[in-house]
């Protein structure tokens, strides 16, 4: 194995159903329903998925949803803003824990 991540593995995702077809079937059905047009458009959902892909740092998801965003009619300015949303939430999540840090420090400090 030359790398833990191989682009050729992405289209093999359905193989995850080989030893647990029922569970995979349920997952993929759910997945398809989630990503379909609903109260949010498929384009909006693909931008959310792209942001989440960056938050969870999944190369497969980034590959898949960068393409999907383009095919849904988004442009790279919108996609970049979506990634900044992920970065802001991730950064904010770190920073807001600073309040906890300050609580501890204040409790221990003179």
């Amino acid at each position: 194995m030359s790398s833990y991540y191989n682009p050729d593995d992405l289209p093999r995702f359905p193989e995850i159903g080989k030893d647990a077809p029922e569970l995979a079937g349920k997952f993929f059905e759910y997945y398809g329903a989630v990503m379909a047009e609903g109260e949010l458009s498929a384009r909006e959902k693909s931008l959310i998925a792209l942001a989440v892909a960056h938050a969870v740092q999944c190369p497969y998801c980034i590959d898949a949803y960068a393409k999907e965003c383009l095919e849904q009619g988004s442009n790279t300015a919108e996609m970049t803003e979506a990634v900044h949303v992920a970065a802001a939430i991730r950064g904010g999540a770190s920073l807001v824990h600073g309040v906890q840090m300050r609580n501890v420090a204040e409790r221990l400090s003179l």
Binding site: L10, P11, F13, P14, F28, E29, Y31, G32, M35, A36, A42, S46, A49, Y60, C61, A64, Y65, K67, E68, E71
Partner: peptide
């Protein structure tokens, strides 16, 4: 058609 094309398109 969604990101992963995971819902069996390959097979279909």
């Amino acid at each position: 058609m969604n990101g992963y094309d995971c819902a069996g398109d390959e097979l279909n």
